[in-house]
């Protein structure tokens, strides 16, 4: 089952453009422009879209179109191939190996960090790992409450501090707590922050350092990115990568009409792979990122279900 088919979605400008791309009987300049437009509407960004189209053109020029397909569909096939190649070939597993291992979740406000941790907590607990949640978002009102609800659902312990407490100390306590209980894994939340505020980014760097002060080892720093994010996503990723050594992306909210094309640019530009994708509100709707699935979803042309 593809990512897209899990939820119905509104018909949008993107679908219209894709329909035009597919319908093309011959490949001409207009086709390339349509293809470029479709990529732009998926938030891939101008530079990446230009590169992708150039590569597809090169291949079509060299090898011709795939046999037996309408020109438009053929072009699309080549594009998918190019995309899967670009996105593929990287390790997407979530690293363990500390005692405990710490997975740190970072990102701007409202992208779904807390929810992602909640879902992942459930998944890891189901997989038999013992874990502790660290409510490091001490800034947002009730963020800890929200995480506590998830902890409750997944039946895992949570360490939280007072509102406004130092996030590093909360994460440190969570790691200590986990170490004392012999837990495998700490999932640590952090406050959403604007990536251009250097003091907040410094704080994040500190959280990361402090998390390793005791027994813990930060084996993953996951940047949570919302699928509706536009070109700013690339800047975000760059800033967070600088502050916290980001090891992977979690792409959330891919169940809307948003395409999440920005992650193509992020992986292309920064080499940070997407590791997980959130495709729905359910606790099971956080899945491993699969390039082929993602690319299919990116081009799923129309209303499903």
């Amino acid at each position: 089952m593809g990512l897209r088919s899990r939820l119905g979605r509104a018909r949008d400008a993107w679908a219209d453009r894709m329909a035009v791309v597919r319908a093309a009987e011959v490949v001409d300049d207009a086709s390339w422009e349509d293809l470029s437009d479709a990529l732009l509407l998926a938030d891939v960004g101008v530079a990446t879209a230009d590169e992708l189209v150039a590569e597809v053109r090169r291949r079509v020029g060299r090898d011709g179109l795939p046999d037996g397909e309408r020109a438009g569909d053929g072009v699309l096939e080549v594009l998918k191939e190019v995309l899967v190649e670009r996105l593929g070939g990287v390790d997407r597993s979530l690293a363990l190996g500390g005692s405990p291992s710490v997975w740190l979740f970072v990102g701007v406000n409202g992208v779904g960090k807390t929810t992602t941790i909640g879902k992942l907590a459930r998944r890891e607990a189901d997989a038999g790992r013992s874990l502790v949640l660290g409510a490091g978002d001490t800034f947002r009102a009730a963020a800890a409450d929200q995480l506590a609800m998830w902890a409750d659902r997944a039946d895992v312990p949570i360490v939280r501090g007072a509102e406004g407490a130092d996030p590093s100390s909360v994460v440190f306590d969570a790691v200590e707590h986990a170490a004392a209980r012999g837990a495998d894994l700490v999932l640590a939340d952090t406050a959403g922050r604007v990536h251009t505020r250097s003091n907040l980014m410094d704080e994040l760097a500190k959280v990361r350092r402090v998390a390793e002060k005791g027994a813990g080892t930060v084996t993953e720093t996951l940047l949570v990115v919302d699928a509706t994010t536009g070109q700013n996503g690339l800047v975000q990723a760059r800033q967070f990568a600088e502050a916290a050594e980001v090891t992977g992306i979690v792409l959330t909210k891919l169940d809307g009409s948003a395409r999440g094309g920005i992650v193509v640019a992020v992986q292309d530009d920064l080499g940070i792979p997407v590791k997980l994708v959130g495709v729905g509100e359910g606790v099971d709707d956080l899945v491993e990122f699969d390039p082929a699935d993602f690319v299919d979803a990116l081009f799923a042309a129309d209303v499903a279900a």
Partner: peptide, 15 residues
């Protein structure tokens, strides 16, 4: 609307 929203903003707003 989040200022960081990409191309999807229009779909959301129209809906």
């Amino acid at each position: 609307v989040d200022a960081m929203t990409g191309q999807d903003a229009v779909n959301v707003a129209e809906a």
